[in-house]
């Protein structure tokens, strides 16, 4: 939370935003059916689906305005002017570039990429290992320069994946993969491995994890005191996903968001070794 004086200045803006938001809710609410019958229920004003949104919108607007009034009373009009001045000054740029703000971008960016790009499409086990590895090393090393580097690296990976999914390279890769399968058959590795080749994204994720591993190794070459932290991070980014994932998938019977290579492997082990104990 901010300090009291700053908080009041922020209140002027947040109160204003709330009031506008409330007005928007009201404007949306007014579009809803007020009188005509909908869903076989006789419709009068008090049954209308708009009733509650209108009430909520009105209350938010009212409270927002009240908040602005209270804040303006406390800091006075001059305080408000100064706050406006701060928004136009280079101080704002400095604030947006400060290390603490950078860390915020990093966390928000990391989560956004993970949740929107990776979880729905890449095997849950593999992508969470990468996610944890990046996340832990970024903060555990306590070095803002490294943090920036690692974050950019993760962004790069995700830019690649974004392209990969947007242009649907998966289907374009299929002939290549079947070619690979043909070769592997040539080497006497029988059909059992073939299904594994159906998950090119997961293989790429594993490759990225490996590259990232090397990249950190190079980045901390000159700081041997980070080496111990490095190994701890590695262990803590591999063990928890497999632990949590296995418990959820096999004990609590929750299918993973995306099931690919790792799940295929675990499934095979599960069905050939453990399943027989239970049934």
């Amino acid at each position: 939370m901010l300090e009291k004086d700053k908080l009041r200045k922020a209140d002027i803006f947040s109160g204003g935003i709330m009031a506008l938001f409330g007005l928007w809710i009201i404007s949306q609410g007014l579009k809803m059916p007020m009188k005509d019958s909908w869903g076989g229920v006789q419709n009068v004003w008090f049954v209308s689906p708009a009733l509650f949104p209108l009430f909520v919108g009105a209350m938010i607007t009212l409270l927002g305005v009240l908040l602005m009034r209270t804040a303006l009373k406390t800091v006075g009009f001059n305080g408000f002017k100064r706050a406006l001045g701060w928004l136009a000054s280079p101080d704002l740029i400095r604030f947006l570039k400060s290390p603490a703000t950078m860390r915020f971008y990093a966390i928000a960016g990391l989560f956004t990429c993970f949740v929107y790009i990776q979880v729905p499409r890449i095997d849950f086990f593999l992508c969470s290992v990468l996610f944890l590895f990046v996340f832990i090393t970024m903060f555990y090393f306590a070095d803002d320069e490294l943090l920036k580097k690692f974050f950019l690296f993760y962004l790069g990976i995700n830019a690649f994946f974004l392209m990969f999914f947007v242009f649907d390279l998966q289907t374009k890769l299929e002939p290549v993969m079947s070619q690979l399968a043909g070769w592997s058959a040539g080497f006497g590795i029988q059909t059992d491995l073939e299904p594994a080749l159906a998950y090119p994204v997961d293989w790429i994720t594993m490759a990225f994890t490996f590259v990232y591993f090397i990249y950190i190794g190079v980045a901390i070459r000159k700081t041997p005191e980070l080496r111990k932290k490095f190994w701890i991070s590695l262990v803590l980014s591999v063990v928890p996903p497999f632990l949590i994932g296995t418990i959820f998938k096999y004990f609590l019977l929750v299918p993973m968001p995306a099931e690919g290579l790792a799940v295929w492997l675990l499934d095979d082990i599960w069905y050939s070794y453990f399943q027989s104990w239970f049934s």
Binding site: F124, S128, L132, I136, F139, S233, S237, P240, I244, G245
Partner: peptide
């Protein structure tokens, strides 16, 4: 250390 702890909590939140 929180730096080890919080990322794992993040993963738990997601699952």
């Amino acid at each position: 250390p929180a730096q080890l702890f919080m990322p794992i909590i993040g993963l738990l939140c997601i699952i």
